[in-house]
């Protein structure tokens, strides 16, 4: 039986060198390019995806360790872009160039699942794993807090 991983709800068979980082499997093999390469050393978090609901750096995660796991990328975070974070990102006009934002949103989604009613400082600390060279940090913080508030109401 071939080895598989579940990506955004689909079973995908793994037919590559298993030491390949998930990032390049997603981008080059599956052509899911929403997950971005930024540094390759887990320093910028542009490549963040979820494995069984936890944020991971796909650039450091070999395909071997996602066998039988459930992977969610930005393309699978919601069916229609309606996740509270995606809506809050638009409402606050967060993106400038937009390149890092998929990773930011995936990181924020994991953070809110663990800390549903964060304080400002909590957001700052958690989101410091991510780099945005355009400098959208002020809006990211506001969007995460807005999304948290919406998720609390729901």
């Amino acid at each position: 039986m071939s080895k598989t991983t579940n990506i955004n709800g689909k079973e995908i068979s793994i037919d590559v060198d298993e030491s390949m980082p998930l990032l390049w499997f997603l981008r080059d093999e599956l052509e899911l390019t929403g997950t971005k390469y930024g540094c390759g050393i887990g320093s910028c978090a542009a490549c963040t995806v979820h494995m069984n609901g936890q944020a991971i750096r796909s650039c450091l995660t070999p395909v071997s360790s996602v066998i039988g796991k459930k992977i969610t990328t930005i393309e699978g975070l919601s069916e229609d872009g309606s996740h509270p974070l995606q809506k809050a990102w638009l409402a606050n006009n967060v993106p400038q160039c937009g390149y890092c934002q998929a990773g930011q949103i995936m990181g924020a989604a994991d953070f809110l699942s663990k800390n549903p009613s964060p304080k400002e400082q909590d957001v700052e600390a958690a989101m410091s794993a991510h780099i945005c060279r355009c400098g959208t940090y002020q809006r990211i913080k506001k969007a995460v807090l807005d999304a948290a508030a919406e998720m609390q109401e729901a």
Partner: peptide, 14 residues
């Protein structure tokens, strides 16, 4: 912005 938050915006690397 809409396509950015769903990972659909195509950059040079994509």
């Amino acid at each position: 912005q809409g396509e950015v938050v769903v990972g659909k915006r195509t950059y040079g690397i994509d």
